[in-house]
Design a protein around this nucleic acid. Structure first.
Lengths: 153, 153
DNA sequence: CTTAATTAGTTTCATATGTAACTATCATGC
DNA sequence: GCATGATAGTTACATATGAAACTAATTAAG
């Protein structure tokens, strides 16, 4: 019964492999900023988005980092409580509120970015420059295709 | 302030991109078996492991599919309740119990495997045969390297 | 205007997940 | 034998996450 034609070789199955790889990498990176800065993965991503794209509304953040608005709302709440993010209600549309890092938030951001960059560089150390470009291009195409497949069905 | 040298281009940042890609793929696949068969991702992975490697203990399953024993225990509990998995206590070591798919479990497994295979094929449709091999090899090396980095630190 | 339909964001509830404590069984040292 | 420690697996607790309901504000239709 096992190992027959019907069985799935999970360890060679692309969706499974992507999941395991992404999880390992995400956890490794999280190890670098979790304890020293007390940030969750979602909180860090929100900070990264705000650090890069100045004032954003919560919806903007969600679009940028592919996170639903509930997750953004919760991450922002936590960051505001710690004074890492500032919120200013839009005068012309009071439903909206633009978000940006506070001075403290920017300081923390500035300390984490190099850690993240260094980890990425180490990870890419597995590949040559050519291979790295190749992997990036191929994974981009996989992503675009996966999105197309999902929308189609 | 935004978009300066200090900022991280999240959309080009490898850990982030891997995470988003894996999540999209995992959700797309989950769409295929969630409603018709009522399985969670972890439950399906346990079934796939059992479908391929005959009798396994819960620990074996966990090692095969990189899942901690608590998650395995819960997935198995759910699958047993639905009669999809059978458990037999080991006579020589009564702490252990070997697990295998029941007849019903095998039938369900046999219906899901083609769905999974088809999805994988469609996803790979984004790449040529060469590119596919290339991507597989590169992602394997990234994974191995990520594991080394994690253990080293 | 005033009602209906949208939109931004939050809260609630139900479920999922991880860590640590716990139970039961087995192996080892004396 | 019988304490000590290890191992397989489960349970409990605390936190994380997603879907849907909800609030507040804006826009559109009549």
């Amino acid at each position: 019964m096992p190992n027959d034609l019907q069985a799935l070789e999970l360890e060679k199955f692309l969706p499974y492999r992507l999941s395991v790889l992404a999880q390992l990498v995400s956890e490794s990176l999280h190890d670098l900023y979790a304890q020293p800065f007390g940030l969750s993965v979602t909180q860090w991503r929100v900070m990264a988005a705000l650090g890069r794209f100045a004032p954003l509304t919560a919806s903007d953040v969600g679009q940028r980092i592919v996170m639903d608005k509930v997750a953004v709302s919760r991450a922002v709440a936590g960051l505001m409580k710690r004074g890492l993010v500032e919120r200013a209600t839009d005068r012309s549309d009071r439903r909206r509120a633009s978000l940006k890092l506070s001075a403290r938030g920017r300081a923390m951001h500035a300390r984490i970015v190099p850690l993240a960059r260094t980890y990425e560089e180490r990870l890419y150390g597995a590949l040559s420059a050519d291979e790295r470009r190749s992997f990036d291009a191929l994974s981009d195409r996989l992503f675009a295709h996966a999105r197309t497949l999902r929308e189609a069905t």
